[in-house]
Amino acid sequence: MTANPYQASRYAADAAFMTFIAAVMAFLYVPIWVLIAFSFNSSRSLSWPPTGFTLDWYAKLATNDGLHAAIRNSFYVATGATILTLLIGVPAALAIHKFDFPGKTLFRRLILLPITLPGIVTGISMLNVSKLINVPLSLETVIAGHATALIGVVVTQVYARLQRLPGSLDEAALDLGAGPWRSFFDITLPNIRSAIISAGLLSFVLSFDEIPVTYFLTGRDNTLPMYIYSTLRRGITPEINAVGTIIVLISFVLICISVMGTKERDQK
């Protein structure tokens, strides 16, 4: 064995990197495990050590009417917002990809702005408008707010996919006599389908979790995160951990669906 100092330092560096990566993973995931673990803890206080296993907090959820209404509202809002963002976001991505028009840079920047712009500005600007033209706040105003805040997410994902498609596909369809509708539905759409699905899933999840926009645009109805937020004003309880655990589980399932969608595309 030749003692190579370079080799030795490389091993040391590798070990340091491994430790670091493990620490980052712990930072990211220990809190989530804490959330899950304490949803099964019998004591009311969230402190170490755990006192015993219980499903009481989940049983309490089952009879909580306010919570159920909030979940229904969240489903309604997230479904509406997802449909709207796709209806606006997919055409926007196509427009940016295909056309050249005056003001295109400004258009692109505006549509992507809400990704960076804190939701509070979107919420307040639309709240001011609703006050000005006397539109009462409701779940529908929340849907419009979410759609505005989330278009950017759909546009980035769909646009990234469009850019990877060979432009010749579309041209061939047009040369063969397909109109723009047919060339879109027969050629472009099947090719960007998985991007649309994963953008739709992400919009759904983000809308389901959204607080800053909802906070300003909701009327008397609460969405699930708003319900949790107002419960938190009264203090923390293991019940919230139980709701949280269920949300984490559902998110996990949706991530898996989205990843499988991407895999299918890679294999093609």
């Binding site: 979790d209 607080i211 995160p225 949790i228 923390i236 919230i240 949300i247 984490v248």
Partner: peptide, 8 residues
């Protein structure tokens, strides 16, 4: 959920 990640 972003709220849960802050709450925890």
């Amino acid at each position: 959920s972003y709220l849960l990640r802050a709450y925890v």
